[in-house]
Design a protein around this nucleic acid. Structure first.
Lengths: 147, 147
DNA sequence: AACATACCTGATTGAAACTGTCAACTATTT
DNA sequence: AAATAGTTGACAGTTTCAATCAGGTATGTT
């Protein structure tokens, strides 16, 4: 019952992107350095994040990635599902709780309920929430400066 | 984010055990036939279920397995954790939410919260709950007979 | 005592998934 | 044109998972 590192890295990278990209695009090179994730691997992730409509790319010198929407409207479950197949805990069930194993599946409701809990929780958190917390943790001085 | 088949099989097998084992022990051969899971694989699972204190074994002819406790006091999370390592979604975190990645782990709280949701849900369901539902699904006639 | 049943254990194998890298390419700015 | 940076697809090493196999031990029956 493990989330892939892809999912974990993607969330971290998105937090990093929002945290350091107030105005200009952030290059993968920067994120790679800050988060200590190989640039080649980040490339894989950001292709999917872009296809998922979560980030936009800016090519050429000074380019990089920017959020496609305000951070308050990017949910954590969207980030994870962009880079990973599924949040549903069993393979016989699709995203909408439909099950291919028919009526003999007496444990169906457990997995369905579990899927809803997982989805519900991750959909209740936004990138804005995570970033706020990261700011509080990393640079308490900055927070104090704001008054 | 998939549960292993071990976990799924274990839950199904436990439901089957309770469903057909009112009085006498149930052999793995029976469960294997009913649930269409190889007996050799079931043996692996039941070794762990036994070590986890969820079932007791009865050796010799006519033997098999019986629940170690009333079904109402066997939680689904116990079954899964007996056969699988962990319900925590990331590898840097232990069962109690302690994290080896230190303070730089800005996404810590997401995984911790998620772990609690998963655990909480699976701990809220008992084998009795599942079996009741299975009975309702499989043999509505029998239920009607009870009156 | 011999036999059958059924649990018990560890080793092993084959397949799949995951993680991460590489190389080559295209677009854009300076 | 030269440098930056995103884009893409292929690939390999490792790990995990699923499942099987072979052989063992305990216990009840005849």
């Amino acid at each position: 019952m493990r989330l892939s590192t892809k999912a974990q890295y993607a969330v971290r990278a998105m937090v990093s992107l929002h945290l350091h990209g107030r105005d200009a695009p952030v290059s993968l090179k920067d994120i790679s350095t800050r988060e200590d994730i190989s640039q080649a691997y980040l490339e894989q992730l950001f292709v999917r994040l872009r296809r998922g409509g979560l980030v936009d790319s800016v090519r050429g010198p000074g380019g990089g990635y920017v959020l496609a929407r305000p951070a308050s409207r990017i949910r954590v479950d969207e980030i994870i599902e962009s880079v990973e197949e599924s949040l549903v805990p069993v393979s016989c069930m699709d995203e909408d709780g439909r099950c291919s194993c028919g009526s003999q599946c007496v444990t169906h409701s457990v997995w369905q309920g579990l899927a809803e809990k997982i989805r519900g929780f991750l959909a209740s958190m936004t990138l804005e929430d995570l970033t706020r917390e990261a700011r509080r943790k990393h640079e308490p001085a900055e927070t104090a400066d704001i008054r």
